[in-house]
C-alpha cells in the first residue's frame, strides 16, 4: 500500500517538477545570462562536464544586466504600466457589464436558471481566438458596426475602432465576461431571499436593500470575478495583437516580440520574471479571498 501511495504521489509530482518548476528555473537562469549570437542565443551555458570549476565559472557570469536594461529602456516600464492600466480599467468595465447580468440571472425564474447558466458557459467552450476574431469584422473600417451606424445616419465617416485601445477593451470585456458573471452569480444565487425581505421589513427601500444587503453579500463573488479578469488580462497576448494597434502596449505582446522577432531570449526571460513578480500580489490576494469564502461557508 505504501509503494502504491508513493507512485501515486511521485508520478504527478515528478511531472510537474520536470515540466513546470524546472522550466521556470531555466527562465530565471537565462534572465541572468547575457545575449549572444550563438545557438542557444545566450551565455553562459552550464557545462557539467567541467565539474565544480565549471559550476563556479557559471555562477560568476550570471548578473542582473538584463533587469538593469529593462529599467533603462522606458518601453518596458511603459508596457508594464499600460498592461496594468488596461487590465484594471477593463476589469472595472467587465464588472459594470457583468454584475447586472449575474443579478438578472439570479433573480430569474428557477426553471430558467440552468439554461441561462449554460448560455454564459457556452462561449467559454468556444475558441477564444474565434471570439476575438469575430470582433475584427465588426469593428473594422468597413465593418458591420460602421455599416450599421452609417445606414442609420448617426455617423457620416466610418469610426476608427479596430487597432486602437478601445478595440482592446471591447475584446477583453467580451472574452472575459463569463469569468466575471459566474462567481458573482454563484454568490447571488446562494443568497437567501428572506434577507432582502428582512431588509425591506426593517425599513429599506428596494434600492437601499440592494446596496446594503445584496452588494455586501456578493462581495466575495465580485472580488473573485475581478481577479479572474485582472490576472490573465495583464499577460494577455492574443487580444492586443489582433485588435490593438501599434500604440497598444501590453507586456505579453512585448515578450512575444522580444522572443520571436528580436530573438533576445535573456531579455524576454527577464520580462517574464518581472511579469510574474507583478502577478504575485494579485494572486495572493485572490487566494486569500477564496480562502475566506471557503471558511465563511464552513
Amino acid at each position: 500500500m505504501n509503494a502504491r501511495r508513493l507512485i501515486l504521489i511521485a508520478v504527478p509530482y515528478m511531472w510537474l517538477l520536470a515540466l513546470f518548476l524546472v522550466p521556470f528555473l531555466i527562465v530565471l537562469k537565462i534572465s541572468l545570462s547575457d545575449t549572444a549570437l550563438s545557438i542557444p542565443p545566450y551565455t553562459p551555458t552550464l557545462d557539467l562536464s567541467q565539474g565544480w570549476e565549471g559550476l563556479k565559472a557559471f555562477w560568476a557570469e550570471l548578473d542582473f544586466e538584463n533587469f538593469i536594461f529593462l529599467t533603462e529602456d522606458d518601453l518596458y516600464w511603459k508596457a508594464y504600466l499600460s498592461s496594468l492600466k488596461i487590465a484594471a480599467l477593463s476589469t472595472c468595465i467587465t464588472l459594470l457589464v457583468g454584475y447586472p447580468i449575474a443579478y438578472g440571472m439570479a433573480r430569474a425564474d428557477e426553471s430558467w436558471r440552468p439554461t441561462l447558466l449554460m448560455l454564459v458557459i457556452l462561449p467559454f467552450w468556444t475558441s477564444f481566438l474565434i471570439r476575438v476574431y469575430a470582433w475584427i469584422g465588426i469593428l473594422s473600417g468597413e465593418g458591420y458596426l460602421n455599416q450599421f451606424l452609417m445606414s442609420l445616419g448617426i455617423i457620416g465617416e466610418p469610426l476608427t475602432i479596430l487597432n486602437t485601445n478601445t478595440a482592446v477593451y471591447i475584446g477583453i470585456v467580451y472574452t472575459y465576461l463569463p469569468f466575471m458573471i459566474l462567481p458573482i452569480y454563484a454568490t447571488l444565487e446562494k443568497m437567501d431571499d428572506s434577507l432582502l425581505e428582512a431588509a425591506e421589513d426593517l425599513g429599506c427601500s428596494r434600492i437601499s436593500a440592494f446596496w446594503l444587503v445584496t452588494v455586501p453579500l456578493s462581495k466575495s463573488g465580485i472580488i473573485a470575478g475581478c481577479f479572474l479578469v485582472f490576472i490573465p488580462t495583464i499577460g494577455e497576448f492574443v487580444i492586443p495583437s489582433l485588435l490593438g494597434g501599434s500604440q497598444t502596449l501590453m507586456i505579453g505582446k512585448v515578450l512575444w516580440e522580444e522572443f520571436f522577432s528580436n530573438r533576445d531570449w535573456p531579455v524576454a526571460s527577464a520580462v517574464a520574471v518581472i511579469l510574474l513578480l507583478i502577478l504575485v500580489i494579485p494572486i495572493i490576494l485572490f487566494q486569500r479571498n477564496e480562502q475566506k469564502q471557503r471558511e465563511a461557508e464552513g
Partner: peptide, 20 residues
Amino acid sequence: VPPNRRATNMMFQSYALFPH
C-alpha cells in the same frame, strides 16, 4: 403600503440575519 413603510416587523423562519 410596501413592507418598509408598515408599522409591522417580521421574524423570519430562517431568521434572515445579515451575515456581513
